[in-house]
């Protein structure tokens, strides 16, 4: 354990509150009693060397994996047993490390689908009566998102023809269309160059300040983390080794040892 005292696990009014999350795979403990909280509107970072369990933890938060022990509370509700799509409807939004776009769909359609899925509008019955064309309101919301992310010129292009940087923006936009309370970003800088990463970070901050959602950022790029994140958690071998304000955590010796690989 590092010198930094862990933040109290049960912060009253926290948006996301994970307590004692433990995940084992066939005898290997991938996560050991990890606690993490995110307050509404806060940007929190989660870092750690490769194999530290970041992605496992991420998947436990999202419902792709079920933790053996521990609870995940979201917005005052226990969501530990909920499937992925139900969590998404409660206000989890996410992007992927390896791009997961809907091949063959235009950028605009990505946004409209996300909007529909979020609002739970549309049914097979409405489809069969041909009453499922995008409504004016839906088009407006999609257009607003295209404008917000600067994707207007790519609106009609099929998603798979976009560059990685633009594709990340489409993923971001798709997640934002579901009006998340908490956005989980899985290494958004991977595969991007310095300029693209910078541009993505700028866009993200801009939108976040406008909409005020919370962000949990899993990231390798130290620069990006320092720029965006106010509070940081560090995982190593499935254990939380430090947490606290970003600058303090980076100054911590244990973190430097585990993550940056050197002790000054």
């Amino acid at each position: 354990m590092g010198d930094v005292t862990p933040v109290d696990a049960n912060v009253p009014g926290a948006l996301l509150d994970a307590v004692g999350v433990t995940k084992r795979f066939a005898g290997i403990t991938a996560l050991h009693a990890v606690d993490l909280t995110v307050a509404p509107g806060e940007i929190v970072g989660l870092i750690g060397p490769n194999g530290a369990g970041k992605t496992t933890f991420f998947n436990c938060l999202l419902g792709i994996l079920r933790p053996e022990e521990g609870t995940v509370r979201f917005d005052g509700r226990d969501v530990t047993g909920l499937p992925v799509y139900k969590r998404a409807r409660l206000g989890f939004g996410r992007t992927f490390q390896r791009m997961e776009l809907f091949a063959g769909m235009s950028v605009r359609d990505h946004f409209i689908v996300a909007d529909r899925a979020h609002r739970g509008e549309g049914s097979l019955w409405r489809d069969l009566c041909n009453r499922s064309q995008p409504t004016a309101a839906e088009n407006e919301r999609a257009d607003a998102m295209l404008a917000l992310l600067g994707l207007e010129s790519d609106a009609q292009r099929p998603a798979e023809s976009l560059s990685l940087g633009r594709g990340r923006l489409v993923e971001l936009g798709r997640a934002l269309m579901t009006e998340p309370k908490l956005l989980l970003l899985d290494e958004p800088s991977s595969g991007l160059d310095v300029t693209e990463t910078g541009a993505f970070g700028d866009r993200l901050l801009e939108v976040q300040q406008e909409r005020g959602f919370a962000i949990l950022l899993v990231e390798h790029d130290v620069e990006m983390v320092q720029r965006l994140v106010s509070r940081l958690y560090v995982l190593d071998f499935g254990t939380l080794i430090a947490s606290g304000p970003t600058a303090e955590v980076f100054a911590d010796a244990a973190v430097r040892k585990a993550y940056l690989g050197s002790v000054d």
Partner: peptide
């Protein structure tokens, strides 16, 4: 296109 991404938007 992607089952995981579809679940992630609900």
């Amino acid at each position: 296109g992607s089952e995981t991404a579809a679940a992630a938007i609900g």
